[in-house]
C-alpha cells in the first residue's frame, strides 16, 4: 500500500490534533512536517521539501470523512494493475 508509513504516523498522532481539525497536515515518513490552512500550500511545501519522494497531505478530521460515489464502481484498483 502506498504511503503506509505516513498513514501510520497520521493515525498515531491524530488524537493529539483536536485543535488542528480541518487543517492539512504534511507527513513524510514518520515525521510530521507542518499544518496548513490550504491543500495547495501543503502540497507545495511537500514537493519543495521532498521532491518526488513519497509524502502525505491529509485533512485532519477526528472522524474520518467519507467520500461518496452513487455508482457501483471500484475505487481500490491500484494504478500499477491497470
Amino acid at each position: 500500500m502506498a504511503l503506509e508509513t505516513e498513514l501510520a504516523t497520521y493515525t498515531k498522532h491524530l488524537p493529539e490534533w483536536r485543535e488542528q481539525e480541518g487543517r492539512f497536515v504534511l507527513i513524510h515518513g514518520d515525521a510530521v512536517v507542518d499544518f496548513f490552512g490550504d491543500y495547495r500550500d501543503a502540497l507545495r511545501a511537500g514537493y519543495r521539501q521532498f521532491g518526488l519522494e513519497p509524502f502525505l497531505v491529509k485533512q485532519v478530521h477526528q472522524i474520518e470523512q467519507v467520500q461518496f460515489v452513487s455508482r457501483s464502481v471500484d475505487p481500490t484498483t491500484p494504478v500499477h494493475l491497470v
Binding site: A2, L43, F55, L56, V66, F68
Partner: peptide, 11 residues
C-alpha cells in the same frame, strides 16, 4: 504517485 488517501462509499 499518490499524495493522499481517503475512504469512499460506493453503491
Amino acid at each position: 504517485t499518490p499524495t493522499g488517501q481517503t475512504t469512499v462509499n460506493t453503491a
